[in-house]
Measured scan of single mutants.
Amino acid sequence: DTFTFTLDGIEVRLHGASEELIKTIEELLKRDIRWEELEKWIREWEK
């Protein structure tokens, strides 16, 4: 599955994202998160 969203005018596609990761990103997007914050968060998630 591919999860697609737009952040700061950039279309982002995550391939093979888990349901948990998708739900977490959706929550972060509701908080009007900035790209830099999401990028940092995703790097931490990957560890």
Rank of each mutant, 00 (worst) to 15 (best):
K47I: 14
K47Y: 13
L29Q: 02
T2M: 07
E44C: 12
T4W: 07
E36W: 13
K47G: 11
V12S: 01
I10H: 13
W35S: 03
G16C: 08
A17L: 09
F5H: 01
E20R: 07
E37P: 02
G16Q: 06
E20C: 08
H15R: 07
L28Q: 04
W35C: 04
E46G: 12
F3K: 01
W41P: 01
L38C: 03
L28D: 00
E39P: 05
K23T: 09
W45K: 03
I22A: 03
L38F: 15
E36H: 13
R34N: 09
K23E: 09
E39M: 15
I42P: 00
S18W: 03
D8P: 01
V12N: 00
E37Y: 07
L38D: 00
L14H: 00
F3L: 03
W45A: 05
L7Q: 02
T24H: 12
F3G: 00
S18G: 06
T24M: 14
I33F: 06
W45C: 08
D1A: 12
K30D: 07
L28C: 07
R34F: 06
K47A: 13
W35M: 08
S18R: 04
I42H: 01
K40A: 12
S18V: 03
W35Q: 02
A17I: 11
H15Q: 10
L21R: 03
K23S: 10
E46C: 13
E46V: 14
L7P: 00
K40G: 08
H15F: 15
I33M: 07
T24D: 10
E20K: 10
I25K: 00
D1R: 14
E44Y: 09
F5K: 01
W35N: 02
R13D: 08
S18N: 10
R34I: 08
R13E: 15
T2R: 04
I22T: 04
D8M: 05
K30F: 08
L28W: 10
V12I: 13
I25Y: 01
K30Q: 09
E46W: 15
D32W: 07
D1E: 13
E37D: 11
T2H: 08
G9H: 02
E27K: 10
T24L: 15
E20Y: 15
W45H: 07
E27I: 10
R13N: 15
A17R: 02
I22R: 08
L21T: 12
E27S: 10
L29W: 02
W41S: 04
L14C: 05
W35T: 03
K40Y: 10
L29I: 12
W41A: 09
V12K: 01
E11H: 05
E19F: 14
I22G: 02
L21A: 10
E26V: 14
G16I: 04
E20V: 10
T24S: 14
R43F: 08
F3Y: 15
T2V: 14
L28K: 06
T6K: 04
R43D: 04
K47T: 13
E27N: 11
W41T: 08
E36G: 08
F5C: 03
V12A: 02
E36C: 08
K40F: 09
E26D: 07
I42W: 06
W35E: 01
T4C: 07
I33K: 03
L28N: 02
R34V: 08
A17T: 03
I22H: 02
T2C: 12
R43I: 10
W41C: 05
E26W: 11
T24F: 13
I42V: 06
G16D: 09
D32M: 07
R34D: 06
E20D: 10
E39R: 11
L14R: 00
R34S: 12
L14S: 00
E37H: 07
E44F: 09
L38G: 01
E37S: 07
R31F: 12
I10K: 08
E19C: 07
T4S: 10
I25D: 00
E44P: 02
D1S: 11
W41F: 14
H15K: 09
D32S: 11
E36V: 14
F3N: 00
E46F: 15
I25N: 00
L21Q: 09
I10R: 07
E26R: 13
W35G: 03
L21M: 14
G9R: 01
W41Q: 06
K30P: 02
W45Y: 12
I42M: 09
I33G: 04
L14W: 05
R34G: 09
K47L: 14
E26Y: 12
I33H: 03
V12E: 01
I22Q: 06
E27T: 13
A17G: 04
L14Q: 00
R31H: 11
T2A: 07
L38E: 00
I25R: 00
T24V: 11
R43V: 09
E36Y: 12
G9P: 00
F5T: 01
E11N: 04
E39Y: 15
L21D: 15
K23H: 11
F5L: 04
I33Q: 03
K30W: 06
E44H: 11
S18P: 08
A17P: 07
E11A: 04
W35Y: 13
H15A: 07
D32G: 13
